[in-house]
């Protein structure tokens, strides 16, 4: 599989106490383990099972994903920002691979 490419969208600046929306997307086939290939053999499961978002080291939101999550999983959520800082996003694959990205926000 090609490397999973994450994409994250959130405002670059916000006011103290604002609740901002964060939209994330990662390219991943989310192979459910239910599908059969052309030879009739079950295609083994391979999904991202955990998504986590932290702000300045504190957990904001996380999601446990199961095979019913669509391919190229989209996940949006909110965060209340009180100070400038860095969001860290992590997607953990069944095989233990963790894909990470960060985003900076300036809070005035």
């Amino acid at each position: 599989m090609a490397t999973a490419t994450p994409r994250v969208r959130l405002p670059a600046i916000a006011k103290k106490g604002d609740i901002i929306e964060i939209k994330t997307l990662i390219s991943h086939e989310m192979e459910s383990g239910q599908r059969k290939d052309s030879a009739g053999a079950l295609v083994p499961r391979k999904i991202i099972k955990l998504f986590e978002a932290q702000f300045n080291g504190h957990p904001v939101f996380s999601a446990d994903w199961n095979p019913s999550v669509s391919a190229n999983p989209y996940q949006s959520f909110f965060a209340k920002v009180e100070e400038s800082g860095i969001f860290e996003f992590a997607w953990t694959d069944d095989d233990g691979t963790v894909t990470k990205t960060t985003a900076k926000i300036t809070v005035t």
Partner: peptide, 28 residues
């Protein structure tokens, strides 16, 4: 999704730092 082979689609976990208990995603 009770009729799916694996019914539990996802569990979304919030904290007070979430600010709002809302989420969007896409399921099979």
């Amino acid at each position: 999704a009770p009729e799916n082979p694996i019914p539990l689609v996802a569990s979304f976990r919030f904290t007070p730092a979430s600010g709002r208990a809302a989420t969007s995603m896409r399921m099979r």
